[in-house]
Amino acid sequence: MNIFRFAGDMTHLASVLVLLLKIHTIKSCAGISLKTQELYALVFATRYLDLFTDYISLYNTLMKLIFLGSSFSIVWYIRYHKIVRRSYDKDQDTFRHYFLVLPCLLLALLINEKFTFREVMWTFSLYLEAVAILPQLVLLQRTRNIDNLTGQYVFLLGAYRALYILNWIYRYFTEPHYVHWITWISGLVQTLLYADFFYYYFQSWKNNVKLELPA
């Protein structure tokens, strides 16, 4: 495993921890999109079907369990926790799941490396992960006050994707036959979705003002 991949995984882990910190400690999920969190839970559930059949490494297994466990517990907190759920911006978080899930499922059935259940599900999870941030970005744009933790959460998620691209470039030049068009293109699309957010994030950081996205 190269440094970019490891840094990417750690950034991803940090994003989840920041979100759990906000939810668990502050007992608030204000500004967090439940739709995006549900999509991530679906992404991990469909991607990690190999959890009990293919052993890669202890690291790999542990990280899969952490991402599965954290994504489902975040969804549980926002939906059912009696204090946390009160802060959920339900009226603002109106993105429809099936607008994203159905096209991704169709695309995975049409474009995949191998037409097997597991491979189609894996491909579906890649496509869905690429667009799963959209409800969150829409909510950020609608929310007047983006608190620090929410801003950092989205920034860390974007950084994780950017580091994965560096990881692929590194692997392409260091490993023989390392070519994965589906992973790369969906990963690139996913990272590009953060471009706008990154721009405003750095602007607010540079000028030392509160993060706010233009309507």
Binding site: R5, D50, E119, H177, H180
Partner: peptide
């Protein structure tokens, strides 16, 4: 082999 190597990422 291509598919297996792809699945070592998270």
């Amino acid at each position: 082999a291509a598919i297996v190597s792809q699945h070592d990422e998270l």
